[in-house]
Each structure stands twice: as structure tokens, then as C-alpha cells.
Amino acid sequence: MPLALSALAAGILFGLGLAVSQMTNPAKVLAFLDVTGAWDPSLAIVMAAALAVFFAAFRIAQGRPAPLLADAFKLPARREIDAALVAGSVLFGAGWGLAGLCPAPAITALISGQRKAFLFLGAMLVGMLIYRLTTRRHA
């Protein structure tokens, strides 16, 4: 339960930050990605600010045996830079550049009630399921 409450608080902060910085708006994100057009560098500021805070938080976490309200820090175990990382990143980036949405804003965009927001999230979930169903055989 404490983990759930911390996740709720973290989600609220994260969602508020996305809305305040307008990263919930696909047109704003595409304006950042359009380097040769009317470039809007706002997303770079958002990333830099978020990174600075998380970088400091991670240094603090490294000096602690466990998080405040959970048993252990669960960090990603993968280390290798392989073909899947490269192909997945390129494919994800292409989709991001086509619609202007990545997974977190895909959720907050639902607040707008627009049909395309639900369409994007639905398609994203289908894409995730296709990955799960097609890779289980090899695993």
C-alpha cells in the first residue's frame, strides 16, 4: 500500500509536469522535432530539468540501502547494446515523429476526450501485445 501511494503521488507530479510544460500536446512535441522548421526547443528544457532532478535523486538513492517505503530498489538489469535496442529505438522514434506522442503523453492526452487520443493509446497497447505474443515463443 505505501508503494501504491508513492506511485500515485509520483504519477500526479509527473502528469502535472507534462501538462504544465505542454508535452501533452502532439503539435508542441512535433515543433521540437522539426529542427529545420519553426523550431521550438521547449522539449529540450523539459528533458534537461527532469534529468537534473532525477540525476540528483539517483545519487541519493545510491547512498541508501533501500527506498523509504519498499523493500529494495528495482533497477533495470539489462546492460547490452544489441540489435533489439537499436531497432526498437528507431521504430519508436519513427512512431513518435509521425504522431507527436510517446507513452506518457499518450495517457494524459485522453483527458482531451479526442477520438485520436483513444485511437493512439489503443494502437499502442495492441503494439505492446503483439510484441508480447510474438516473443514469448522464443523466450
Binding site: A87, A123, G127
Partner: peptide
Amino acid sequence: AGLMVGYGTQLCH
């Protein structure tokens, strides 16, 4: 784009 983002983010974790 949604399909690509869903599949791509799983592939690159």
C-alpha cells in the same frame, strides 16, 4: 504511429 510506439518501446525496453 501508436502500433510503432507500442512495439518499438517493448523491443528497446
